[in-house]
Amino acid sequence: MKGRQRETVKGIRALLAGEKRTIARIISAVESEDSEEILEHIFPHSGSAYHVGITGPPGAGKSTLVSAIAKRLLGKRKKVGIIAVDPSSPFSGGALLGDRVRMTDLALDENVFIRSMASRGSLGGLAQATKDVALVLDAAGMDYILIETIGVGQVELDIAQVCDTTVVVLVPESGDSIQAMKAGLLEIADIMVVNKGDREGCERLLTELKFAFEMREQKVGWDYPILKTTATEDEGVEELVVAIESHASYLSKTGRLEDERKKKLLLRIHELIEKRIRFHLKENIMPERDIIKLLDKMYERKLNPYRIAGQIARRIIRLADRRFV
C-alpha cells in the first residue's frame, strides 16, 4: 500500500512536470480502470485549461481544423492537448483510430500532446473516460484542450458538458444543415463553422445557418459567430481562434464561466455517484444469475418484476444508508 502510494505520488509529480510518457501512462490508467485515487490526486492541479469541443459530421474536416487551430495556439506559445475520439466496433470492441493522420505536422512539437480514444461503447460522441482524460491533460499544464468528437452524425451532445466552448463544424454537402438541426447540433453550438470554404454551396449554407440562428433564442450578450474556413488552406482559422478567445472572455466577464463550470461539477458528481452505484450494484449486489433464477417464476406469472425490483431496491437503499454514505 505504501509503495503504491509512493508510486502514485511520483507519477503525479512527473505528470505535473509535463513528462509525456507519464501523461500517456496515466491516461491509459484512467481510461481502463477505476482510477479515482489517481484522479483525486490530480484534481487539485486542474482547472486552468480552457476546453474547446469540435463536433460535426464525419469528414467535415474536424481533425484538420483541430490541427490548424492547434498550430495557431502553439504560435501564441500555448500548450495544447488534443483528444480525438473515434468509434469502437460494436462487434469486436476494437477500433481504428485515424485522426492522427491529419495532425502529423504537429506531432513533434513539444507543446502538444495528442491522444486518440476509442468510444468503447459510449454513445454520446465521446468516450466515457474523456472527461477524466481531459482532467489529466489539464493537470499536465495544457492551456487549451481541444476535443474532437466521433462525428457519426447522431446526437453528440456530450461535448457541451465537457467543454467551455463548443464549435460545430458543417460542410456544404447536401442536407448537412437540416441534419444538424435535427440532431440538435445548433443548440449546443457556441460557434458555427462552415468548413471546406473552397467548395461550392458554401455561401448558401452560411445563409441558411444565419437564418436558423436568428430564429434561435439568443444567449444574452453573445453573438453567435458563423464562420467560414478552409482548414486545408489554413483560411479563416485565425478568425476562428479569435472567436474562441472572445467566447472565453465573454464567459469569464459575465461570470458564466464559473457558473457553467460549477454546473459541470455538479453534473460530474451525479455521474460519479451513479457510476459507483451502478458498478456496485452490478458487481456486488445484484448478480445477474440470482435474478435469472427467478425468471422462470416470472414467466409463469408466479412472481412479478415490480414486486421483486421493489424489494431489491428497498434493501439496497437500506444497505446504502448503513454502508455508503
Partner: peptide, 16 residues
C-alpha cells in the same frame, strides 16, 4: 493488418 487487429478487439492507431 490494422483491420484484422481491430476485428480481434484491439485499438489500432494508424499513423498514415
Amino acid at each position: 493488418v490494422a483491420a484484422a487487429l481491430r476485428d480481434a478487439g484491439m485499438e489500432v492507431i494508424y499513423t498514415g
